[in-house]
Amino acid sequence: MTTTMEKKENGVSRAERMQCGCAYAPGVDIIENQNEVILLADVPGATAKDIDINFEQGELTIHAHIPSRQGDETRFLLREYGVGDFHRTFAVGEGVDAQAIRAQMSNGVLKVHLPKSEKIKPRKIAVQSE
């Protein structure tokens, strides 16, 4: 198993037009170890209740609703980034146990644990001597 998860869209950056308005693609790290795949996403400004994670037909969708922090009439002197919702979809391989997916939020970072299903976990086979 080389890549359990593949980013669906190619090189998404900046705000994307979406059905529900505009959204940013969060930066992510995807780390795989023996037992699970861990996805870390930067979603600053979001708390646990703002996050919506869906797993459907092999696709994991993350949506973070970011409440506006400044009013429309704010006088910006420097504006290096925009504030808005985060959204990104990943294709997930069959080796993930969908029932056991869980997630937690801490300091604006979302951590999603995707445990591997038993049948694809690496197993060491003992060789018996006769």
Binding site: T4, M5, K7, G27, D29, I30, I31, E32, N33, L40
Partner: peptide
């Protein structure tokens, strides 16, 4: 982490 594979590393 030892033994872990990074499939994506976008976070600074």
């Amino acid at each position: 982490t030892e033994g872990a594979t990074y499939h994506r590393q976008e976070r600074g």
